[in-house]
Design a protein around this nucleic acid. Structure first.
Lengths: 125, 125
DNA sequence: TTTCGCTATATTTGCTAGGGTATAACGAAA
DNA sequence: TTTCGTTATACCCTAGCAAATATAGCGAAA
């Protein structure tokens, strides 16, 4: 009995989840998807390759980065067309700082929420 | 010059936003929309009136509540068909406890995120 | 000046979540 | 037993978003 109860508690535990994002004015600057995309750009050096690596359409990736660039005053990713390798995309130092700040805040938010789980009412099965 | 800079800082300030939700197993138990709907049910006493008050279709409201009831072991809202007023929906005490817990956690999450705003890199306009 | 791979953008196609509508089932009270 | 307002559910249909496709433009290097 005690065994079953503890098993159920393990399986059916509550989990508080969250998503955070950064807004500037009325525009979304950064969210989880955009951060993943920026990191893929850092790894691949181009927007199209980054999109492909995330199995995302180039169009969607471009729209996301366009929105980031439009809502950020300080440049986050700089694009270049033509040239040796056809062009490419580079995440600026400021963009990299944003990424690390975002990810640490996100992790800390998750940690905080985990501490709040025990404030939820117990379900009596 | 100093004046303009401070004005820009006020207008263009970063804002870290978030949404939280509670999962049980793999199912979503509660999110912001469901909490609003539950509160509307408490106020109106019926699912259809609650949906109307939130300008939400009855179908959508029913689906949300159905999902809540299916993912919760302890009943959250009990429905009755027929009778004096055709039936109705009642949020259980357990459901009310869930609502208040959810809302305080949410507020505390927002407060926490507000304290983290200054860890974001400064944009140099 | 030709090639190449990338950015940038328009157009079409396809899909799915959601609204609208209709209708059945229900049960207390008049 | 009729009325009434609700829950519950099926069906069609549409708008809006996303994917797919096509194509133009670019510039360094060979």
């Amino acid at each position: 009995m005690k065994l079953y109860a503890s098993l159920i508690n393990v399986i059916m535990e509550y989990k508080i989840k969250s998503r955070i994002w950064i807004e500037v004015g009325d525009n979304v600057l950064l969210g989880d998807g955009r951060v993943q995309l920026l990191k893929a750009i850092i790894e691949t050096g181009s927007l199209s390759k980054a999109a492909k690596s995330l199995e995302m359409s180039y169009k969607k990736a471009w729209k996301l980065i366009d929105a980031v660039n439009k809502s950020a005053e300080t440049p986050v990713v700089s694009m270049s067309i033509g040239g040796k390798n056809g062009g490419g995309a580079i995440v600026t130092d400021y963009g990299k700082e944003l990424i690390t700040a975002f990810e640490t805040i996100n992790k800390n938010c998750w940690k905080f929420l985990d501490t709040q789980t025990n404030t939820l009412p117990k379900s009596n099965i």
